[in-house]
Nucleic acid binder design. Structure first.
Lengths: 228, 228
DNA sequence: CACGCAAGTTATAAATTATAATTTATGTTA
DNA sequence: TAACATAAATTATAATTTATAACTTGCGTG
């Protein structure tokens, strides 16, 4: 990497870092290119050398967030891969919530409403989205394929017309995955993910004294249903 | 109501209506006081006679949305009150999703991330929030109290330290509600609501061919667990 | 050494929310 | 009915946005 490119990368990183900081203080809306530039000691339009537009910056942040979440999940999955399936998936799901609470802004960027007028570009975010779901699927595959656990009873009553559509990128990560595994994964992910969104996007929070305990409780309940 | 007050109310309604329309087209961010005024044939600052600020307008819209959702749920609950508990709750939950899909903007206003820099005022929104949860609780109370159904098995393993905190307003709607009923309600609401948020805020949608079928499937699964 | 391109600058355009000052219209009251 | 108070709307203006254009500076490589 040339000397110039290195400095360029540093500048890009600093811009993104400041953008995250700004959003952490005032919400996803308070992102201001001008303010960032000012804070970096340069003036407004200079930033457009590094990001084509405000939306381009946001897209970059979203992609980063996706990667970071996926990395966190994969790392946990790897660390507990020698533990029993139940413990391994438990740790992954706990990491999921932990990461969301530790990086609320990034989580909002990924799963929240689009920012002011920002239009998420499916083409850019979709590939990485698969990486988030993949670790969960891999653990479930181990449970039902390798260890031959019986599939959950509720799969029997699943409507036959209902079909899963694994995205291109996810199929690359996990080729030839049995449909039943994916179904179980979706049911679990919806359940878990929904809880986290509710906790993070508030409005329901005051209902429970300790969301963490409730989350753990629901995880065990889910595992029981999954025959883990 | 005086003649002037009536016109004033009409104007307020028109502003809110146009605001909703605007958001429906360009997302919650595209709300512009100027554009509304222009569309109404008056110029900018005139709107400030009716709403103190942009945030005040948004708050009004949020309150309206809460009311509308609560009304829809209550209406369905009333219409099916003579049906078996299971059918009644099913219809209420179907209405919940239906309303969310039919009014995505309002649903985002209520449960999504705050708009660009907008800070939700708990004091204003909390009271109405109770009305959304209340119909569900009432049906569950009927099941477990009046009809003496056994409580779900999973309640046994609920951590004893976990406590529910019913808001002031909810206690007024439902006084002296057994804690167990509230627990079941929360578990159910989290599950259901989480699914809807995922469907609405996308990012996971392409995973399933028919979200409606999945939703119905999960409802039945939930009911089985609830002994309904 | 000199040329080319990257990086940053200022100037400017088109929006936004919001305030101040002013005019116009309405409704009530002496 | 006439006069006055207040509501409603206007224009002008300020302070911010994002974004483009044109120009200057300076690095680094051939």
């Amino acid at each position: 990497m040339t000397r110039r490119a290195k400095f360029r990368q540093i500048t890009i990183d600093e811009i993104k870092s400041l953008a995250r900081l700004q959003m952490a203080e005032g919400g996803t809306a308070s992102l201001s290119l001008n303010a960032i530039a000012k804070h970096m000691g340069m003036s407004g339009p200079a930033l457009y050398r590094y990001f084509e537009s405000r939306d381009a910056l946001i897209t970059a942040l979203i992609v980063d967030a996706y990667e970071a979440l996926a990395n966190a999940l994969e790392e946990t999955a790897a660390r507990f891969v020698h533990q029993p399936v139940r413990e391994c998936l438990r740790q992954v799901l706990l990491t999921y919530r932990r990461w969301a609470l530790d990086h609320p802004i990034d989580f909002q960027l990924i799963f929240g409403n689009p920012i002011p007028g920002y239009q998420a570009e499916e083409a850019i975010t979709a590939p990485t989205a698969g990486r988030v779901f993949a670790p969960i699927l891999r653990i479930l595959e181990r449970a039902y394929q390798q260890e031959n656990r019986p599939y959950p009873a509720f799969l029997e009553s699943l409507p036959p017309q209902l079909q899963v559509r694994l995205s291109q990128s996810m199929q690359e990560v996990q080729p030839s995955l049995p449909e039943k595994v994916v179904y179980v994964g979706i049911v679990g992910w919806y359940h878990i993910h929904g809880m986290i969104m509710l906790e993070l996007f508030n409005h329901i929070q005051p209902l429970l004294s300790d969301p963490a305990q409730f989350y753990s409780f629901e995880i065990e309940r889910l595992f029981d249903q999954m025959n883990l």
